[in-house]
């Protein structure tokens, strides 16, 4: 098993950094361009949610932990922000609590569509953790 563990400040500049770091780690599995783009989108959605919702654009730390086991990439992205009251509702397509900020409510839908598994854990005023799994080159 191989692991990657990084923490970044909750800033919009770091969204692209997170995409680059995780996709460089994933490159070890020799993914296709489409798989890389799936991973980048999912990471971007999760990290952006920490910045916008978790920490409401204030200071905070975002933790990213990845593992590679066989052909499976697991990505865990965590904040210690405001948390989510109703996770099931939050995961619904087009559901957003920030419509005034031009959010479309598609973030969780993209994570679900582009990855093979999505788990969301959250506690109000404690934070949110998103775990995503993707099998690379799945032609067994």
């Amino acid at each position: 098993m191989e692991t990657l563990s990084v923490q970044i400040e909750s800033k919009s500049e770091n969204e692209s950094l997170a995409r680059v770091i995780v996709s460089a780690f994933a490159a070890r599995l020799d993914p296709t361009l489409e798989e890389i783009s799936d991973i980048k989108t999912a990471v971007s959605e999760a990290v952006t949610n920490c910045v916008i919702h978790g920490y409401e654009e204030k200071d905070g730390i975002i933790r990213i932990e990845c593992t590679i086991e066989d052909n499976e990439l697991t990505i865990n992205i965590k904040d210690e922000g405001v948390g989510i009251e109703d996770i099931e509702k939050a995961r619904q397509p087009m559901y957003t609590t920030k419509r005034d900020k031009e959010r479309s409510g598609m973030g969780f839908s993209f994570m679900e569509i582009f990855m093979d598994e999505l788990k969301v854990e959250s506690e109000v005023n404690k934070g949110t953790a998103v775990t995503m799994v993707k099998k690379i080159g799945n032609i067994s």
């Binding site: 783009s37 980048k40 989108t41 952006t48 479309s104 598609m106 973030g107």
Partner: peptide, 13 residues
């Protein structure tokens, strides 16, 4: 080369 849900907000807006 890349757009995520934030881009949807820009275009819809």
């Amino acid at each position: 080369n890349f757009m995520d849900s934030s881009g949807i907000g820009v275009i819809m807006g």
